[in-house]
Simulated scan of single mutants.
Amino acid sequence: MELTVRLFALYRERAGTKEFSLELPSGATVSDLTDAVRVRFPRLAPPEVKIVVAVNADYAESDEVLKPGDDVCLIPPVSGG
């Protein structure tokens, strides 16, 4: 299945794009997606940083199964004070 993945803030800057298409096998999970994203954009986030994923405007767990047409967004960690 082909998904469009949108990037925000720091992730957008590091990847050099605000969105991209990603081909994943049917039945792929959020974890499969983040693994594929790390291969495509190795500088996106260090291995120890969990990439937060929203699917259809809700935060997604790593074992959530993705479906064609899902709205997928990657949200970088936020810090502030």
Rank of each mutant, 00 (worst) to 15 (best):
P46Q: 13
T17E: 14
P42H: 07
P77H: 02
P25C: 11
V49G: 14
D63V: 01
E19L: 03
V5K: 14
A45D: 04
S26R: 11
V78S: 07
F41S: 02
D35H: 14
C73D: 06
G69N: 09
A57L: 14
E19F: 01
V5Y: 15
G69P: 09
A36H: 11
A15Q: 12
F41C: 08
T17Q: 10
Y11V: 08
Y59P: 00
A9C: 02
S31G: 08
K18C: 14
P76R: 10
S21Y: 14
E23T: 15
E64F: 00
S21N: 15
L22H: 06
I51R: 12
N56Y: 01
E48Y: 12
L24E: 03
A28L: 00
T17G: 12
T17W: 12
E61P: 00
L33Y: 11
K50C: 13
E64M: 06
L66Q: 08
V65F: 07
T17D: 08
V49L: 15
G80M: 02
A28S: 11
A15F: 07
T34I: 04
S62A: 10
R14G: 10
A57C: 04
V49M: 14
F8L: 09
S62P: 09
R12Q: 05
D58S: 14
G16N: 06
A57V: 09
G80W: 09
R6M: 01
P47F: 09
R43E: 15
K18D: 15
P42T: 11
T4W: 04
L33I: 07
R12I: 07
P68Y: 01
E13V: 13
E19Y: 07
L66K: 10
L44G: 12
E23L: 07
V78E: 10
V39H: 12
R6N: 08
R38I: 02
L66T: 03
D32N: 04
G27F: 12
S26H: 10
L7Q: 09
G69F: 03
I75C: 00
D35Q: 12
E2C: 05
A36D: 05
E64C: 00
D32Q: 08
R40F: 05
E48T: 10
V78P: 04
A9S: 02
P47Y: 06
E19V: 00
V37G: 14
E23Y: 11
V72P: 05
V52S: 11
E61C: 03
V37Y: 13
V49F: 12
V30P: 00
V5F: 12
S62E: 03
F41K: 13
S21E: 15
D58I: 10
R38C: 02
K50H: 14
P25N: 14
P77W: 07
L24Y: 06
E23W: 03
E48K: 08
R38L: 01
